[in-house]
Design a protein around this nucleic acid. Structure first.
Lengths: 225, 225
DNA sequence: ATGTCATGTGAACAGGTTTTACATCACGGC
DNA sequence: GCCGTGATGTAAAACCTGTTCACATGACAT
């Protein structure tokens, strides 16, 4: 790995023959192109044009377009993990509230970083060829996994659900809502409520059934008290 | 030897200058290309090659690649609606069981028709330009919407959840599981259980909380009786 | 100063898209 | 039966992008 020392030119003008920080410039260009036209709309040639270099220059830094996308996705997973960790905050105060915050952070990330989210989940990258990417994805999921574990551990063993299952359910629900309703996609559907509220309601209903959250806004099955 | 004619006529014979059924042949070619390389990997030129015609011929039938994809997605939604309807079967017998069957049908479709599913949900088609596509998508969702309504109507009004919300939750959960774990994608993750079981468990937990299903495998909160 | 190597250029080739002019054929009026 | 017309397919061309190659540049160590 190269640690480039050249600070980025604040003015943005060319430095002469060598760019100075082309790798980062390409990643930034890829991000804005993905945000604009999706992972499939991104091309190496256009990223090179945005960076102000010839179409062949990017190949000095990335083997091909997929490698560049994989790097974007990798960084996305790292930011994602950080955002989820901060929201979860180790379950500080009320674990259920922290869990809700985790869910909201999921959608907030999808909403505020659509390019990263698309690179992470929509670009069809062969994970086998990018083990670092797979590991980063696993670490991000690990935050949700651990939060589920903590939630479940608040119950007595005999009523404790498999925390992996809980994590998978919540992840799938959040991802489904993100892809169907949050992405700034022309195919997005309209929703009668915010995606965040939809997710929060869904998670509350789900957790309530497991005995992990209090009553929701909708009628629970009849119970004493 | 530029584009050799493909002497493979499954249902339509070679007809000399004119293909005879090029529109359908292109749709079939698009399906197999999407299945192989995703919606982004599909090109008009390759579809034309598969159909045994010149690269310009498809433009007699589709304005551009997006129009062809939109037609594939439209047919996909029609098949999808049919599959969901059959599974729901108007809620015959037990509505909860029918609802489960609906969920399984969702994943079965995603598993058995990955090309259609990708065209429907992964190809970034501007729905505004294809109102028929949008309508077909709404009809498919309508099946889930109506099933949720039927389920909810089994409860007394004061404990009845908003059926649209239930439909959105179940749809998002099913879609999330489908995109994360079912698609034959190189980025697919491994799962400790079948996607169908994961969805069924999730829906059961969810419905139980609303008072719409009996006890799940995991301990519900303590209640009277 | 000098050699070396990472980095960028320019040219070349392959393929995809889309348009235009033309070729072929199916079909219906006569 | 003949023929004209529109639908469908071809060929060619102009224009993209991806990718590779030989070569140019200059940052840096010696």
């Amino acid at each position: 790995m190269t640690w480039t020392r050249n600070p980025e030119p604040p003015g943005g003008e060319r430095r002469g023959y060598h760019h100075g920080n082309l790798r980062e410039a390409l990643l930034a260009a890829a991000l804005s192109l993905i945000a604009e036209k999706g992972p499939a709309g991104f091309t190496i040639a256009e990223a090179a044009r945005l960076a102000g270099v010839s179409p062949a220059a990017p190949y000095r830094h990335f083997r091909d377009a997929e490698a560049l996308l994989a790097e974007v996705a990798l960084r996305g997973f790292e930011r994602f993990e950080l955002a989820l960790s901060r929201a979860w905050n180790n379950g500080a105060a009320d674990p259920v509230r922290a869990f809700e915050a985790l869910g909201r952070a999921y959608l907030t990330f999808a909403r505020q970083e659509p390019a990263y989210y698309a690179a992470m989940f929509e670009a069809r990258i062969d994970r086998a060829g990018y083990s670092a990417l797979e590991a980063a994805g696993d670490r991000a999921f690990g935050v949700l996994r651990e939060a589920s574990e903590r939630l479940a551990s608040s119950l007595p063993r005999e009523r404790r659900p498999p925390s992996l299952m809980v994590a998978l359910h919540v992840w799938a629900l959040a991802h489904g809502i993100a892809t169907l309703f949050v992405r700034p996609d022309p195919s997005r559907r309209k929703l009668p409520m915010s995606a965040e509220d939809l997710l929060e309601a869904g998670v509350l209903v789900y957790l309530q059934s497991l005995g992990l959250a209090g009553g929701s806004a909708f009628g629970p099955p009849p119970r004493a008290t």
